[in-house]
Simulated scan of single mutants.
Amino acid sequence: MTLELAAEVGYAGLNIEAVARRAGVGKHTIYRRWPSKPALLLDALSRVWITDLDYDDTGDVRADLREQFLRSAPALANPPIGPVYRGLIAEAQTDPALRATLHERFLLTVERRTLDRITRAQHAGELVAGVDLEFAAEVLCGTLYYRHLLSTRPIDEGTVDALLDMFMAAYGTTR
């Protein structure tokens, strides 16, 4: 309900009072659980987004990364997640606590799940052995977030394929 309201009125237009009205409760009920609009929205986002970040493991790391990136891109670009997430990112630039929370609850989660998937691929022999893949996971995720948050360029199949081609050229065992 919170994300739907945010999609209707925009991040800046959303306030606790409107959420309370929509929920049919007093604003103090909302404030008891969530001390601020960002806290409320972070919780709402985590309920619909984090559950969709798990990678398939088909034995083909490139295909699994591709499927996940193409599945995630529309969620980041469209309501209800996209506009709310962009609003939180913007607010986090002047709120160090929110920035740390966003990093811990969302960005690190995405990076860790990506790292887990590519590490399994490394152990299976799909990727070069003995290479630290932590930075690679950050670059894979960061490229898509950069495009989504700071660029007007799309995250489409061509973008994802080019990113994965570079990744596989650098880390794949069939170079």
Rank of each mutant, 00 (worst) to 15 (best):
T51V: 13
P35L: 05
D54R: 09
L42N: 14
P35K: 10
D54W: 07
V61G: 07
D43C: 06
I30S: 01
L70C: 07
G26C: 01
L14D: 02
L65D: 10
L42M: 15
R47E: 15
V48Y: 03
Y11D: 07
T51I: 09
T51W: 02
F69L: 13
R21I: 00
K37A: 04
G26T: 00
A39S: 14
A44G: 10
L41Y: 11
P35V: 06
W49K: 05
L45V: 11
Y31C: 01
L41S: 11
D43H: 14
Y11K: 06
P38L: 13
Y31T: 06
F69G: 00
R47A: 14
R32C: 01
L42A: 12
D60W: 05
D43E: 15
H28G: 12
R66W: 06
V19C: 03
N15C: 04
L14G: 03
L40S: 07
L41M: 12
S46W: 00
N15D: 15
T51A: 11
A20I: 04
V19K: 01
A12M: 00
G26A: 14
D56H: 08
L14I: 07
G59P: 11
L41K: 10
R33S: 08
L41N: 10
R62T: 15
R33Q: 10
W49N: 07
A63G: 09
I50Y: 00
Y55G: 07
P35A: 11
A23E: 12
G59Y: 09
A20D: 08
I50K: 07
R66D: 05
E17I: 02
R62I: 14
L41G: 09
F69V: 08
L53W: 11
R47F: 01
T58M: 09
W49Q: 11
L40P: 07
P38M: 12
R22A: 14
R22V: 03
G24W: 00
D56E: 13
W49Y: 15
D56F: 02
W49T: 10
A63K: 10
S46A: 14
K37G: 03
G26P: 03
D56I: 03
D57S: 12
A18G: 06
W34T: 03
G13I: 00
L53C: 10
T58R: 13
L53E: 06
Y31S: 04
R33L: 07
A44R: 05
P35G: 06
T51Q: 11
G10A: 11
G13S: 03
R21D: 00
R66V: 08
R32D: 11
I30V: 15
R62G: 11
R47K: 13
L14V: 09
R21N: 01
D52Y: 04
L45E: 12
D54K: 07
